[in-house]
Nucleic acid binder design. Structure first.
Length: 921
RNA sequence: GCGGAUGUGGUGAAAUGGUAGACACGCCACUUUGAGGGGGUGGUGGGCGUUAGCCUGUGCGAGUUCGAGUCUCGCCAUCCGCACCA
């Protein structure tokens, strides 16, 4: 009987669907395990073989955990709001909901063919109103809370109002936009509108004016992580800076906790570092400098990590967008400053990045007083100071900061060295080392001593205070687009007001076109009656990360109409034990989700501080393109090895008509009309193609579709091969070359069970040799699966099957545990063989430990082998071998020999230097 | 510039500090079949040798160790992330 993978795979996929094999319920009698994939955005192009890599790995682990007796939650859904569907809608007029539904159906079909063990009854789609109800709900909660720095958690705004009316602004230490000072009397005297303006400064979801990444090409603002090198990540349009009023999430309030709790996570160091850098904690001091524009006095606040260098301040610099610019520009300098600001504003983000080393600036006309020396220093304005970080103003110490140094050199400002023996004639001395000089009371201290001493001084004299600054900025939360979650906010007398919870979900209205209105409003401005009780509703929508921030919670209780997740479900499933996805979400989704979770944790809706305990980043699968070489001005193609003899052009050829770099010339002629009568110059009778590694994309003709692999080789082969390709975390090009090896393995496995006439499995007792093969496999596989080293696990299976095949072993005692262990990797063939062995039902319900009980750690003993009384190495020996067999076997001569001990063959290698080296074969 | 990762055959890759290159692709030889992207056996890092075997070999250079692909330090190269963050 042949291995008919098509029939087998169809059979078991419908079996799983019919029997709802992978549906799970909370079950207190079993330990839970939650395995999650980053859900996909269903694009029109469908899945290519790179997409399922992570899904296959997580599926293997899920199935393995199930075999080990865990109650495994392994859900899947779709991140269905997004720009591409809307761009498509603008072009074609087709509603994004229609496009999205179609793409989802296609994705589902492709996923099903690979044989994943998802519990589809828990599927979520972010564009489904029943789902986004809870996205909106969370937003309202954020609107209704502020972050109390003292308590270190979110608190209701009502509490804030209470404090304000009793003690004024000083009664609370809250995260806010700008620092405000008012008394209880002042608060109580405010109008409702004024009060709501003040509260907006504290809310976790708030509306505020900020410098945003505006993308004219997409007609919307973007978050920092949606912009790369001055271009939008989606679409690649240029991005510029613009001041706008936008909804924002006060993620920055959680910066400290987001940073500290990274320690508790099992994530890779590189990913943790990425988040650490993105959060960017720096410890220093905030100081106030008095500045004078004519006779008007202002306080400029600056942030520095080098408080020790205050004695070297020779000028101050303001960011062009700083609010102090206007106040400190003198009448004489007004024209020059305005010209500079206009120039700076014109630049796109892209140009600013490109010109980072170009020094520009303008003198404001004002002076500031160094609070320690009393000296007057000029106040400048320059782009190199960023408005969004610290206070938007700096004290410049050119001797010890390279940027200040470049600025001072360009504009001829003085440079005062503060460290003994440092040379600042060519460049600044940025290192935090050496002995202080020219620094008053700090003289003679090391830099490390001087920093805290300077801050102590500054605090004692009321000039400033210790401060920790974060690079992490608040997330801009509105998009001027249609295809996203509407904000459940309306404007009553111009005041942003939340809709009542029972009005949720606020569904997306129908619009005639998906473009902005003539007056420049977002597409929702086209909706017929976009009002609530007569008041206008917010017209922007939420960004892509809104719907993906809490989806892992919704899977726990996806059909709950009265809560995001019930207490019971949350307390059972808790958080994600294993999360698999790409690194591209390191500074976006993975920050927002953690923030969202912490917020809900503060409010008591979830029981875990962190959403994703262990995280694995699967590598990207790149495309492997093939090329043919056309001799110029002809329709003749020359094989790769001969191309240098002609003048040729390199042309991409569809990788699907190339096998092992050999072109199917007939298929090539049929591929495109232009090539219908192509001629070929072959080498050794074959046309060899060139190759290169590129991104997998349609235009490179290097997209390999998993459906095609399933057709030719089957899903089990695809699954095994993707794992066999190399370590999961590594990026690599897809190369179909080699898939035959894996397919051959499955056929060979099949032949252990079947010959021409049918099943040949016997109940004979296994030989020690065969048992050893099995136990070696079990030991290796368990270890490797637990450490996600799936490529070596597949190798271990191959080795085992090769050995069994060699011995013509067809004994149930061996084969049964073998296929149970294989079932996470190749579930269809395993189920089929399991059934052939006379078992009822799915293999998923087989309890793996029963089958491996006899394989225990005890079958191997570890001895330490010592030489001259010192432990040299440890040695694992089979139980049958005793310590005495090894002890004292130190040979004087270098030799290599076989050593028989306890019936086992041991190879003894004695290297020069008389050290025994024993390896058990 | 800062941070991280990676460097092993023709290829994808294995190696708790202990026989480097398992396993697989490809290639070569033999074999089987009417045929098939078939089945089987053997070989395959490089150099020398008819064989036995010898020499050499994990980006480069040091170090630790009886012993280093693995640990430490310094280079070089590639990839990724951040980037005027005061």
């Amino acid at each position: 009987m042949e291995y008919d993978f098509r029939k087998i795979e169809r059979k078991w996929q419908s079996y799983w669907a019919e029997h709802k094999t992978f549906e799970v319920k909370e079950d207190a009698s079993k330990p839970k395990y939650y395995v999650l994939d980053m859900f996909p955005y269903p694009s029109g192009a469908g899945l290519h073989v790179g997409h399922p890599l992570g899904y296959i790995a997580s599926d293997i682990y899920s199935r393995y955990k199930r075999l080990c007796g865990y109650n495994v939650l392994h859900p899947m859904g779709f991140d269905a709001f997004g720009l591409p569907a809307e761009q498509y809608a603008i072009q074609t007029g087709q509603h994004p909901a229609v496009t999205t539904a179609k793409n989802i159906a296609r994705y589902r079909e492709q996923l099903d063919r690979i044989g994943f063990s998802y519990d589809w009854s828990r599927e979520v789609r972010t564009c489904d109103p029943a789902y986004y109800k809870w996205t909106q709900w969370a937003f309202l909660k954020m609107f209704d809370h502020y972050y109390d720095n003292g308590l270190g958690k979110a608190q209701p705004v009502s509490r804030l109002v209470e404090i304000f009316s009793e003690k004024g602004s000083d009664g609370v230490n809250a995260a806010c936009g700008e620092e405000m000072h008012f008394t209880a009397e002042q608060w109580n005297a405010m109008s409702e509108k004024e009060k709501s303006g003040v509260l907006m400064n504290y809310r976790i979801a708030y509306q505020g004016v900020t410098s945003v990444n505006w993308c004219p090409g997409l007609g919307t603002v973007l978050a920092n992580d949606e912009v790369k090198e001055g271009y939008s990540v989606r679409g690649g349009f240029p991005v510029e800076q613009k001041k706008m009023t936008q909804w924002q999430l006060r993620v920055s309030a959680y910066a400290g906790r987001l940073l500290d709790d990274l320690e508790t996570l099992e994530w890779s160091d590189s990913l943790k570092d990425m988040q650490k850098n993105w959060i960017g904690r720096s410890q220093g001091a905030e100081m106030t400098f008095k500045a004078f524009n004519g006779d008007k006095e202002y306080d400029i606040k600056i942030f520095t990590t080098r408080a020790d260098t205050v004695f070297g301040v020779t000028f101050m610099v303001l960011a062009p967008e700083s609010e102090w610019v206007e106040k400190l520009t003198s009448p004489e300098q007004k024209e020059a400053v305005e010209a500079y600001l206009a120039e700076a504003k014109k630049k796109t983000e892209r140009e600013r990045i490109a010109e980072t080393h170009k020094v520009t600036g303008v003198f404001s006309g004002s002076v500031a007083i160094n609070p320690l020396t009393g000296e007057k220093v000029p106040v400048w304005i320059s782009e190199y100071v960023l408005a969004g970080y610290g206070t938007g103003a700096i004290m410049a110490v050119p001797a010890h900061d390279s940027r200040d140094y470049a600025f001072a050199k360009t504009f001829g400002l003085p440079i005062i060295p503060l460290i003994e023996g440092c040379d600042v004639s060519e460049s600044s001395f940025d290192a935090k080392e050496g002995i202080m000089c020219n620094s008053g009371f700090l003289n003679g201290m090391t830099v490390k001593e001087a920093i805290p001493a300077a801050i102590d001084y500054v605090e004692a004299h009321g000039i400033g205070r210790r401060k920790i600054n974060y690079r992490l900025r608040d997330a801009i939360f509105s998009r001027q687009r249609y295809w996203g979650e509407p904000f459940p906010i309306y404007f009553k007398d111009g005041v942003a007001t939340p809709m009542p919870e029972d009005r949720l979900p606020l569904e997306l209205p129908e619009v005639d076109k998906f473009l902005p209105t003539e007056s420049g409003e977002p597409p929702l401005g086209r909706a017929a009656d976009w009002t609530y009780e007569g008041w206008p509703i917010e017209k922007s929508t939420m960004p892509g990360f809104a719907g993906s921030s809490a989806y892992y919670l919704r899977y726990m209780d996806p059909h709950n109409g009265s809560a995001l997740v019930s207490k019971a479900a949350d307390e059972y499933w808790r958080n994600v034990d294993l999360y698999i996805g790409g690194t591209e979400h390191a500074t976006g989704h993975l920050i927002y989700s953690r923030f969202w979770n912490k917020f809900l944790y503060d409010l008591g809706y979830v029981c875990e501080k962190e959403p994703f305990k262990k995280l694995i980043n699967q590598g990207m699968i790149q495309g492997r393109s093939n090329f043919v070489y056309r001799i110029v001005n002809t329709n003749t193609f020359v094989s790769y090895g001969l191309k240098d003899r002609y003048e040729t052009t390199e042309i991409h050829v569809d990788v699907n008509i190339v096998h092992n770099d050999r072109l199917d010339t007939d298929a090539f002629r049929k591929w495109m009309p232009d090539y219908a009568d192509a001629e070929f110059i072959l080498e050794d009778g074959e046309y060899i193609c060139g190759y290169g590694v590129e991104k997998m994309s349609k235009s490179m003709y290097n997209v390999v579709n998993p459906d095609m692999i399933c057709d030719t080789y089957g899903a089990d082969t695809l699954r095994l091969y993707e794992m066999f390709l190399g370590p999961i975390e590594q990026s690599k090009p897809w190369d179909t070359k080699g898939i035959d090896g894996v397919h051959r393995f499955l056929k060979r496995l099949w032949r252990l069970f079947y010959d021409r006439d049918g099943l040949v499995v016997t109940d004979e007792k296994a030989t020690p040799e065969e048992l050893k093969t099995l136990h070696k496999l079990i030991g290796k596989a368990r270890e490797d699966i637990e450490s996600f080293s799936f490529n070596t696990t597949v190798s271990a299976f191959m080795i085992a099957v090769n050995e069994l095949y060699e011995h013509k072993c067809n004994k149930r005692e061996i084969l049964e545990p073998l296929i149970i262990l294989l079932s996470p990797f190749a579930p269809h063939i395993s189920e089929e063989l399991w059934e052939a062995l006379g078992h009822e039902g799915s293999i998923s319900f087989a309890s793996f430990p029963e089958y491996v009980a006899e394989y225990t750690e005890e079958s191997v003993c570890t001895y330490a082998v010592s030489f001259n009384g010192k432990t040299r190495f440890t040695l694992d020996l089979p139980k049958s071998m005793s310590k005495e067999d090894v002890e004292g076997k130190v040979l004087a001569e270098p030799l290599s020999a076989k050593y028989i001990a306890g019936g086992r063959v041991v190879k003894v290698i004695v290297v020069p230097g008389k050290i025994v080296n024993i390896v058990v074969k």
